[in-house]
Amino acid sequence: MKARWHLVLIPSLLLSLFLLLSSQIAFLRGSFFKDLRLGRIGTELTVENYVRFFTDSLYLDSLILTIRLSATVAILTLAIGFPVAYILARMRSRWSLVLLAAIIAASFITIVIKVLGLIIIFSSGGTLNRLLVGSGLLERPLTIMGEPAGVVVGLMHFTMGFAVLLLYGVIKTIPRSLEEAAEIHGAPRRRVFLRVIVPLSLPGIVVTSLIVFNLCMGAFTSAALIGGGKVFTLPVLIQQTVIMQTRYAMGATVSAVLMTVTLLINALSVFVMARFDRRRGMVA
């Protein structure tokens, strides 16, 4: 009587694998041949593109920058989004859903539109900077466009909706009674939050930060439009290598490295999480 669920999976798997492998093999295969520009590649197998990637500071710096930016966005999005998700999840009014909906909607409006607004907001003569400088909070106007900080802000606009929605779902599954019990025993709310809520939602936090991190590793539009031509993340570099320089083999190499590194970081976090879980299990 047992359903053969793996049979259900097969058509989807075949289709997805076909699209994934055929498109990626056609492209990534080039990374093992000499780059002759204009989409042309040599005939002999070689790893010189990979050697070049790992010996050239341009690519290595870009890899490090991409990881750093993505990690920063993941941490900031989590740090800001978690309390938001928590407040919304514990709100007793219908407004919580309206607010949640608004956050998601705002998050998904394409950055192409938002970037114009961001330029105005952070312009040195703009209201924000006049307030900041006028009130003496800052000495010089805050300019983040064309800086990594601006790219971080742009990416956070994009990831916040995902994060809040995912975390909201996680926190909702934690019974409110747990907090109330702890509070009755005299624990202050902050302690309850840090000792009960955060540990219980840790798996959700890890999953959410990985999703945010992965999204940022592949994001092109924010870095290209807000980076002001100075923030060369790997996707920006890939676009430039393939489209401007028509170096498809080198572009394929950069993108193979980007994918591998992202997968490794994911695998590593899952592994560390599993170890951590086991240790906690033993202590308890």
């Binding site: 341009l58 710096d61 320089q245």
Partner: peptide
């Protein structure tokens, strides 16, 4: 092609 690569080296933020 060459200029593009050297440009990136010259201006990219570290």
């Amino acid at each position: 092609d060459d200029a593009t690569q050297r440009w990136a080296r010259a201006v990219s933020t570290r």
